[in-house]
């Protein structure tokens, strides 16, 4: 399979004074790929997105965007669009005026109002096209920022937290636009803290921590690296479910935190086949299974594990681990 490269970064380093924002970063984004960028606050995501948009240049390393080496600020090739730290919009102008001004600046006004109308329609803002942006919600602003990027017919779209403030309808519009662009061959690099969005949109992700890449690759590979997860079960007989989970090979029951209300759920830790075995045993013993799901989504779990940004407390100890400790003491 042949793929063209929209972004190719090698050994990118960028510092702000004493703060190293990016430290020897490598990144490849192919055309037609939706590439997620995740990392804790201060990991260097915004700096990287700024480099891709040409707002800054790397201190060292090599960056090629759409096949063009980028060596100075604002020198990225035509076809790169997007926003960092929220879309830049002028509240005293209407949505249409904001887009028309951008089209004029970037000389994309050949299509005139038709292009502007088309971009507004794609993000579902046709009805408010002539309203001033001052009254727009955060979600509407995000969608208008996306429309502004669409107007430039991008080959590389860079989006910083595009799902911020979106309602379900807005989210649907944004997802549809992004997947549509990718299907047409546009590379999309987006950062987000919402793992469900990344899981729904991205084929590949790069996880950054303190300016370094701790993972880069397909989403499926990341999920596999997450190892054992905690699963929460809601059953008709919690006591019986607790007993069966304790007896299931490969599974450990995660005890409740002190003070946590006794409820109908049980949390177990183990690989997927062991959880499957527990489900079989519950059904066989006549215990109704009402809910079953990971306590933390696989992507999020991998993110927390790789970046070391969990709650800060050690993982909860299972009942078996407690018993083993007591036996050792004897």
């Amino acid at each position: 399979m042949h793929m063209t490269s929209a972004v190719r970064a090698r050994g990118i380093t960028k510092s702000f004074g004493d703060v190293v924002a990016l430290d020897g970063l490598d990144l490849d984004v192919a055309s037609g790929q939706v590439h997620g960028l995740v990392g804790p606050n201060g990991a260097g995501k915004t700096t990287l997105l700024g480099l891709l948009l040409g707002l800054a240049v790397a201190d060292s390393g090599r960056l090629e965007i759409l096949g063009t080496p980028v060596g100075r600020t604002l020198a990225v090739p035509d076809g790169v669009a997007g926003f960092v730290d929220g879309p830049g919009l002028y509240p005293s102008l209407t949505a249409r005026q904001n887009l028309s001004a951008l089209a004029s600046l970037r000389r994309y006004d050949a299509g005139g109002t038709a292009d502007v109308d088309d971009a507004l329609e794609q993000v579902g803002l046709t009805d408010v096209a002539d309203d001033r942006v001052r009254g727009f919600s955060l979600g509407m602003r995000q969608r208008l920022g996306l429309a502004a990027a669409l107007l430039t017919k991008p080959r590389l779209l860079v989006l910083d937290e595009p799902a911020n403030g979106l309602d379900p309808a807005g989210k649907h519009h944004v997802h549809r636009v992004i997947t549509g662009l990718a299907a047409d061959g546009t590379a999309v690099v987006l950062s987000s803290h919402r793992m469900d969005d990344l899981a729904a949109l991205c084929s590949d992700v790069t996880i950054l921590a303190t300016g370094r890449v701790v993972f880069s690759g397909p989403l499926s590979k990341l999920a596999a690296e997450s190892g054992e997860l905690d699963y929460r079960l809601v059953t008709s007989d919690p006591a019986e479910a607790h007993r069966l989970a304790s007896e299931t090979p490969g599974l450990r029951v995660v005890p409740r935190d002190p003070g946590q209300r006794a409820d109908a759920d049980v949390v177990v830790r183990g690989p997927v086949p062991a959880v499957d075995e527990l489900v079989v045993r519950l059904v066989r013993d006549g215990v109704a299974l009402r809910e079953l799901g990971p306590v933390v989504a696989p992507l999020e779990a991998a993110f927390l594990a790789l970046t070391g940004t969990g709650t800060g407390a050690p993982p909860a100890r299972t009942d078996q681990e407690d018993q083993a400790d007591q036996e050792d003491m004897r």
Partner: peptide, 24 residues
């Protein structure tokens, strides 16, 4: 999977001053 580099593109030209003036 093999990756090939896209045809290099020239850096985008700055917007004309007149357009910027009109926008401002």
């Amino acid at each position: 999977m093999t990756a090939t580099i896209t045809e290099p593109r020239a850096a985008a030209r700055p917007a004309p001053v007149l357009h910027g003036y009109r926008f401002e």
